[in-house]
Simulated scan of single mutants.
Amino acid sequence: MSLIIAYIGKKGCVMAADKRRIGYFGDKENLDLLEEELYSGSINSDDDFLNRASELGISVKITDDASKLKTVGNCIRGEVSTKGTMETKRRRIYGTTNGYQIIELLGSQTKSRNAGKSGIVIFGNNFAKKMAQNLVSKKVKSFKSLRYIGDVFEDILKEVSSKTPTVGKNFDVLMQQPNFNESEAQKHLDLTIDHDIKVLTKFRQELTEQLVQQYIEIEMASKIIEKGSIGRVVNVDGNMIFVQLNEKTQAMDTNWKKQLAAPGQNVLMFSEGLSAAIGDEVVIENGNLCLKKDKSSLKCDIILCSL
């Protein structure tokens, strides 16, 4: 659902890209049929696309705020991506003065990497790409300036977007023109891309850790004790009460990362009154932590949950 057009030459690099992203939800066979019609060019407008999706029982979400271009060092990066069931496939072009590289990634693993010196590179589905190629051959007759090339690319994106809903009507255009020869360009691209992929790898690792932590929190949250006995008072020191947990209760820290007390171990609680005595049963009733004998409230900075 993207169209990226890149020019790389002796004077610099310019890229233009639409900002459309489309999400699908529905029956796989009907999704395949809708995509076939969409990529063949038989669906020409957003309204026709939404109407056809409705006929097939497909829920569609269209957004036009996805940034597909980014300045990285003295390069421009353009990216198209496809989310699979297990991994995201990314196709990237990095361009600068006198050089570019095209990278294909699965997750954060590099599957292919090819370099070039100059030219016009187009990313997009077959229909949009073919139309853009024809328009480029008609409109780009000679190099005048990067600004001129950028304006031409934006005109091409507008024309393609009027023929297919796979390309949105909002665009980004970025330019870079550092003073690199061909050798310097490839060295800079190598360093920039290697660092950029490391950043992606770190981001994915952090995201994975966050997802694992969220899963743990969800699992543990289901074990929070909302009703029943949790232990008995074993020591009292003013408003400080030490409670020995019963065989079914454990105490976790508030981040769910550490077990603070296992069954049979003691935890510290605080009483709002002076009625607690050794041997008193501590319970949770209606979500409130209290002494069973008189419902005197207790407080603690731990999470009480079942094993």
Rank of each mutant, 00 (worst) to 15 (best):
A16T: 10
K19A: 10
R21C: 10
G23H: 14
D27R: 04
L31N: 05
E36G: 08
E37R: 11
I43R: 09
N44V: 15
D47V: 15
D47E: 15
L50C: 07
L50D: 13
R52N: 12
S54W: 06
S54E: 10
E55K: 09
D64I: 11
K68N: 10
G73W: 02
C75G: 05
E79Y: 06
T82V: 07
E87D: 13
K89T: 13
Y94S: 09
T96A: 12
T97L: 07
T97N: 06
I120D: 05
V121L: 13
N125V: 04
K139D: 14
S145Y: 07
D155F: 12
L157G: 03
S162K: 08
K163P: 04
G168K: 00
K169F: 09
I193V: 13
K202V: 07
Q205I: 10
E209H: 03
Q210K: 14
V212K: 11
A221W: 07
K227V: 08
G228N: 11
R232C: 11
M252V: 08
N255R: 01
K257N: 01
A261D: 01
P263D: 06
P263C: 02
Q265L: 09
N266R: 11
F270L: 10
F270P: 01
I278D: 06
L291Q: 03
L291E: 00
L291W: 01
K293F: 09
S297Y: 11
C300Q: 06
